Simulated scan of single mutants.
Amino acid sequence: MKIVCLADTHLKKFNGFPQILESQLTSADLIIHAGDWQTIDVYKALCSYGNVEGVYGNVDGDEIKKLVPEKKIIKIEGKRIGIVHGDGIGKTTEKRALESFMEGEVDLIIFGHSHIPYSRFSKRSLLFNPGSPTAKRKLPYYSFGIITIKNDQIETKHIYFS
């Protein structure tokens, strides 16, 4: 199972995805967006590649909020995956993401908001932030993630590009 994971696209006007992301989307079994789509066109474009799961973020409007929830849990290949944007007040984005799900409730938590790529275990869950493929802020590279679930194992990988 290959999952392409992205967040924080922040595209007010959609003109396509970076080529490196598009090349991965064509072979994805599932696409996960962890919020801040900013336009419904991003959702529609991702759906043209396959099945899309996602949540809304703090900059998403009603159009997106009608399509996706604030947080969700999906089950894939026997693994429970929590998806949340991670925005809020106080604490780090990682702590807010972790606290969105009860301890042991999920195997993997996918989140966004900070635009900072992140992959680390905390308690019993692997926390994964793919970064942003279109809004790197002060980081040197854009990024998105590839998650592979195989033989009861979860592997995460960041794809960095400029």
Rank of each mutant, 00 (worst) to 15 (best):
M1P: 01
M1V: 01
K2P: 01
C5N: 10
C5E: 05
T9D: 07
L11H: 07
K12D: 12
K12A: 09
F14R: 02
F17N: 00
F17R: 01
Q19P: 07
I20S: 04
Q24V: 07
T26N: 11
S27V: 08
S27L: 06
A28T: 10
L30A: 03
I32A: 06
H33A: 08
H33F: 09
A34S: 13
A34E: 05
D36N: 15
D36C: 08
W37T: 01
W37K: 04
Q38I: 13
I40H: 04
I40K: 11
L46Q: 04
C47A: 13
G50W: 07
V52D: 08
E53N: 14
K65Y: 07
V68Q: 04
K75E: 15
I83P: 02
V84H: 02
H85M: 09
H85D: 09
G86H: 01
G88I: 03
I89V: 15
K91N: 14
K91S: 14
K91W: 11
E94P: 02
E94F: 01
E94G: 03
L98W: 04
S100Y: 12
S100A: 14
F101Q: 00
E105F: 02
V106E: 00
I109F: 08
I109G: 04
H113N: 13
H113Q: 10
H115I: 10
I116F: 06
I116A: 02
S119N: 09
S119K: 11
R120L: 12
N129I: 10
G131Q: 05
S132F: 11
P133K: 01
A135W: 14
R137K: 15
L139R: 14
L139Q: 12
P140T: 07
Y141W: 14
Y141H: 14
F144E: 08
F144D: 06
F144M: 09
G145D: 08
I146K: 10
I147L: 11
I147S: 04
I149T: 08
I149G: 04
D152L: 12
Q153F: 13
I154A: 00
T156W: 04
K157S: 12
H158R: 00
F161E: 07
F161D: 08
